[in-house]
Design a protein around this nucleic acid. Sequence first.
DNA 1: CTGAAAGCGCTTACAG
DNA 2: CTGAAAGCGCTTACAG
Lengths: 343, 343
Amino acid sequence: MASVGEVPANTTIYDIAQRAEVSIATVSKVINGNGRISTSTRAKVVRIMHELGYEPSMVASALTGKQTFTLGLLIPDLANPFFAEIARNIEDRAHHMGFSVIICSTDNKPERTERNIRFFKQKRVDGVIIGTGDVDAATIMDLLKMMPVALIARDIPTLAVDAVRVDDFLGGRMAVAHLLESGHRRIAVVAEDELFVSSLERVRGYRAALEEAGISYDSGLVVQVIPNPEIVKAAAADLLETRSDLTAIFTCNDLLATLVIQAARERGLSVPGDLSVIGFDNTLHASIVYPPLTTIAQPMEDMGRQVVDLLLGKIKDPTITTQKVIMLPELIIRSSVGAAGKG
Amino acid sequence: MASVGEVPANTTIYDIAQRAEVSIATVSKVINGNGRISTSTRAKVVRIMHELGYEPSMVASALTGKQTFTLGLLIPDLANPFFAEIARNIEDRAHHMGFSVIICSTDNKPERTERNIRFFKQKRVDGVIIGTGDVDAATIMDLLKMMPVALIARDIPTLAVDAVRVDDFLGGRMAVAHLLESGHRRIAVVAEDELFVSSLERVRGYRAALEEAGISYDSGLVVQVIPNPEIVKAAAADLLETRSDLTAIFTCNDLLATLVIQAARERGLSVPGDLSVIGFDNTLHASIVYPPLTTIAQPMEDMGRQVVDLLLGKIKDPTITTQKVIMLPELIIRSSVGAAGKG
DNA sequence: CTGAAAGCGCTTACAG
DNA sequence: CTGAAAGCGCTTACAG
């Protein structure tokens, strides 16, 4: 009963003004709750807006020079559980603050990235969050001329741009330290390709942990893959074939961990009996898979909230200080890591 | 080198017109590729737009009465793998057709749903796709007065609204038929609550399959849960405890299947040795979990593409015929179903 | 407390 | 082939 069916769908501020016998300026003021309006006219206007089911046009108000209250989000793939969870948390926080978000998956393909960035510009989004690895410093600087930008789950340290990420180096180090503590010495690492800068950092952490333990680096134990299930499994199978001395593998995310476990199982190895595997991210996957994954957790909820808050801060006041927020990863112990020497 | 750094970020059509020594109407025509423009002026305008790094404002062009080239998408939860994959496919198709999509997760909470729908109206999206179960017929009819609507992965058969979904009834029947063929007779079903209408249909399929096999219906074998991991596992444990005659369970989605398998394993039951489990959806999960899930596949890619095409068709021509597209599910055999009577 | 008027950056007939 | 002008639905000083 709130809306009268006969009224044309595209009711405007003029219709409201006319019926309420006030000016559109007055209507605008009650909509936005600013200016001094008498209680009675306010009530009248509100009632009429309600009766007509009027919804003010954000496109018109955006044109008037205000914001679009829209954020752009660039991620590699929405179907990737980690980015789906990140996107969900970003969405939640943005909505809470009155912003909507346009999510774009790029698959790390330059032409898609470029297209989406142009799209964001044309849409006049108020700011953009970048979670893909294929946007270079020059592109970001260019974008920064038009609107605030914030990085999520990655960073370009040399660039003055807000960023929130987990300490990937530390996380990688923690993962390998846990493996070392469990007695493992021959430890491989499976990482994503260089488009995922974070993977590189995690591998650095892997090297640091080994070094600290006095274990010499063996480049044959480092494998980089593109995130395709078949390719990952093949790479893992190859690794297990050629390096039978392996007792543990650190995989740079949970999905890789799952695939590596499958590859191990297909070769008759039990996890963690014959092979220990530790993941990274702590997505929904980690707890649902068998065996449940010991992994390094990223605080995805905090990260999503923080990156939105940083970006909105910049939107409100462009002169605010740029920040690099680095969150601490956390070791989550489940069942995919066992003591060495049982195999 | 395409853009000149000194130019203010907010270049408008007036700036282009001025520098190109033409009218804004002419610039508008070259942007949109309509009207007759001489090759030389076109070239000149294009060059200047390039030099100034000009991107036309979609908010201004939207206001002029055209479209916003934006779609709204309402789903229960972006972090749910099924909806993440659906959203990804919708995004891909929409982008391909020049539209962006605003994704909103509602968690099936009425206040969120209502808020998001109002948001879509204010944003003047060109159409909305609904994949949540909590939007009733009245709300949809109301929304239809303002813009085209299409349903994904659900339907309200009595309502004249475009919809694309899989045949849930048939899928449920196929799942249980497969279990029956494997010799199972005592088969339970674990479904989501009634907000997921599709779950109800799948349970109907379950009943039909049993009936056709001459097995009488046992309401104690039907359990409904809300999709919370702990609750699902508790419900499954309870079911396994009280009904030790069970040899198979049909779960209404892959996530439930995974949780049921965990619950079974925690009770010392092996899958499929002691208990067979068949899922639904065929998300990424199904192939990644252990044991890999035998499940009923939904053609998510086709569904995403189709629902976008239906909606865009309606946007282009509102008088076009409304369609209910029902896709066929497909049985995907992996390893979670075994022959009965081994336990 | 209220309103007239200019302006946001485009598109679209219409005239030439 | 090109341009002047009206209009899309708002907001924002400014005046009263």
